[in-house]
Design a protein around this nucleic acid. Structure first.
Lengths: 204, 204
DNA sequence: GTGTTTGTTGACCAGGCGGTTAAGTTACGA
DNA sequence: TCGTAACTTAACCGCCTGGTCAACAAACAC
């Protein structure tokens, strides 16, 4: 009954790529279907053949983004070295900011406007995952492997600093003179310094 | 010739307050004049009497925000204690995130959508200020008062972490259980820890 | 009080919005 | 090769958008 053809998968993807770009730049309300259509190089009526509503494109592209988002956090290994694990996570997030800045902007736009579409997701999916990871971090602290710090705010630190290099790129461009490669390697060393030395457990 | 009446100042302010709220939540394109009008409790035609275009409200509210934004950075005192000065700045920014979250969201929205309105400002006003402050920080480092770190990325760190507590509040709400007071005092100690210990100069 | 400036608004406009439909074109299995 | 299901789009719809305007009300200087 429901078979997905080649053209279907191809064109759906084209629409989603264009939708991500436009929604990331203007948010849900600021984006127009016409603009998504012209970005995708298709007629408006045609993209509405694949996604009947603007909102359908939005949730599709947002859901995909969120799934990618969660992956690196899930891999935090309780048995590993705390500094190494946290730094690996921060690195992965920074890399995502570089590789998929639009995904970061999309998420930022959604949350800034009050998370109207993903409020439930934050409560039902993100929260339990974060609570779990925070207990892992807390256990590291209790065992003296990490300086005492609020695990949740530590996550906020990692999120905010890494996503900054996607969301605020126009500002960074105005202030930073060197290549993109150097920008991200400088960012990496700065974050590493703040994270690692900031989390050094007190001497025994 | 150009005298501003009492009603003018009062009502202009009402419009700007409403405009800040709406633009912060939906960005320039996503905001509607009708919505600003109803938020201000005035008719659409009336608010367009004070600001002839939607864009005029936007630049007015954005300009005001940016001026407030820069103030605390300007007070960075080269003669002061580096840790104290930087921490005072970070604290001031965090307090602004708490007191005026809409201003932070407005700015974030503008930059995320490519800074179409304030690109010139970033180059002409923000940049020289930041360059100057970076040399101050660099001088502290050269004198051994601060751990070696990239001054610009240090500013990025302060900006991103503090603004996170305004822009991403819906996400924080979903993850954080205690009072707003406790949230911000926890944030403060976490940031202080990361900033101060992360910047401790190497032992002589 | 009166005249003039300032403030207020309902009605209106052209264009853009998300979305539908009907009619046509293309792809493809049999 | 042919039939049919999948695909494409011009034309259209009602509503909302930013913005104008003329007519009216309020405030104020004298």
């Amino acid at each position: 009954m429901k078979k997905t053809t080649r053209i279907q998968t191809e064109n759906s993807q084209r629409v989603l790529d264009a939708a991500l770009e436009v929604f990331a730049a203007h948010g849900f309300r600021g984006a127009t279907v016409d603009q998504i259509a012209s970005t995708a190089g298709m007629s408006k009526a045609n993209i509405l053949y694949y996604f009947r509503r603007k909102q359908d494109m939005y949730v599709a592209v947002l859901t995909k983004t969120i799934e990618d988002w969660l992956t690196p956090l899930k891999t935090l290994n309780p048995a590993g070295d705390p500094h190494e694990e946290l730094w690996r996570y921060a690195q992965a997030k920074l890399q995502m900011s570089r590789d998929a800045p639009d995904a970061s902007k999309l998420f930022a736009n959604e949350v800034i406007s009050g998370a109207p579409m993903i409020g439930a997701y934050l409560q039902n999916d993100l929260r339990p995952l974060v609570v779990h990871k925070c207990t892992i971090i807390q256990r590291w602290i209790d065992r003296g492997l990490l300086a005492p710090i609020d695990p949740l705010h530590l996550l906020f630190f990692i999120w905010s600093t890494t996503q900054h290099y996607a969301d605020f790129m126009p500002q960074i461009d105005a202030l930073y003179d060197h290549s993109e490669d150097k920008l991200f390697s400088d960012a990496e060393s700065t974050l590493k310094q703040l994270l690692i030395t900031g989390l050094q457990p007190p001497a025994r």
